[in-house]
Design a protein around this nucleic acid. Sequence first.
DNA 1: GTAGAAATGTAACAATAGTCACAGTCCAAC
DNA 2: GTTGGACTGTGACTATTGTTACATTTCTAC
Lengths: 209, 209
Amino acid sequence: MNITEQFKHIFEPELLKEFEVKAKLITVQEGETILDIGQTVRVIPLVLSGTLKISRMGDDGHELLLYYVSPKESCALTFTCCMEQFPSEVKATAEDTVEFLAIPISAMDDWMMKYPTWKSFVMKTIRARFNELLKAIDQLAFQKLDERLIHYLKEKSKATDSSLINLSHEQIANDMASSREVISRLLKRLENDKKLLLYRNQIKLLREL
Amino acid sequence: MNITEQFKHIFEPELLKEFEVKAKLITVQEGETILDIGQTVRVIPLVLSGTLKISRMGDDGHELLLYYVSPKESCALTFTCCMEQFPSEVKATAEDTVEFLAIPISAMDDWMMKYPTWKSFVMKTIRARFNELLKAIDQLAFQKLDERLIHYLKEKSKATDSSLINLSHEQIANDMASSREVISRLLKRLENDKKLLLYRNQIKLLREL
DNA sequence: GTAGAAATGTAACAATAGTCACAGTCCAAC
DNA sequence: GTTGGACTGTGACTATTGTTACATTTCTAC
């Protein structure tokens, strides 16, 4: 795929040329961690295809999904970390095969000045991610686990654009910082309520959900 | 107090002059809400004295404290909201009497270009608030209520720079999206453990905490 | 096919948090 | 000083979530 093609409505042509010169195209396989907590952020990822999963680790070894980064998006947490060379507070893993443009930090600052579309993109991204974090906080503070699970499934469905979710209960529990048995229990209840169908490593969401 | 005085080590003199021309000094009383959820953000608050409390509301009427904005700080959520004229996602209330500079949105963008110290301040603020939200998420996802309560008390103590906390159990429960009885119970346990002393509308933190 | 691994189902119990009900206690205003 | 309101303490009960311990099912590799 032509890199500039999918961004031509977002960024000005000069900026697209800069991409070609300064950004590096990187491909990672499903499950690969491209950035771990504590690592210094060296580049900003601009996703071309596939999905990145951004998550937070607890001291107890539990994990919590914060949000997904889809094609044409980037991660605000890396912006702010990298601009001041701080270590990352989150983990970024490839949900599937992911292609992304790695934009060097040095370009970031430069482009903010030179290209209004870049500045606007950065600000949009920051705002969007703030809202994702607020949504995550809402879920944790105000919703019970069953509602959080429904929310999780819907988000996952949206991110993959499919009502079929290919995850084990274990993986879901992990994303939600809960335990497998609890998730199994709640999923079974949702199945009984005709909200979804359970298969091995797969969940089919029904309209009722 | 001279407004420019406390910022003279942070911002360049030209920017301080702009403050005098474009920013408005506003004083609000304890308990006043300067920005509610859904309201359009019209100005950016730069706190001079006192503390702003930034919180999130749940559908169930519960509230959750996100973080405090102390003197010489600002709130990143207003930056991003106001730059694109979005309604606020959070509530800002005065914890005590608060003086702040109200910076018009129009100036914001302009200054980002003109003054490196302003851009750096904005970026620092955004990064700091991202980290506060991540900390809030950590607390909710990975800590039990008793540990969250301890964390809350310590933060409050830090924000007011005092080991005496002037809050009722009700107010604490409200900030933590919990209920009064539960907080009373946990506080009593902490008192039994010699971690603190309970009085009416007041809690004295001990070194053990 | 069979073995072993991975995934799921479930019961029983523990721990945590929320709710209800009410008693007692402190404080300020009259 | 008494009265009403706000604040605190606590027991009993419920709901939710987590843990332990297995049984069962499904898939894959041999």
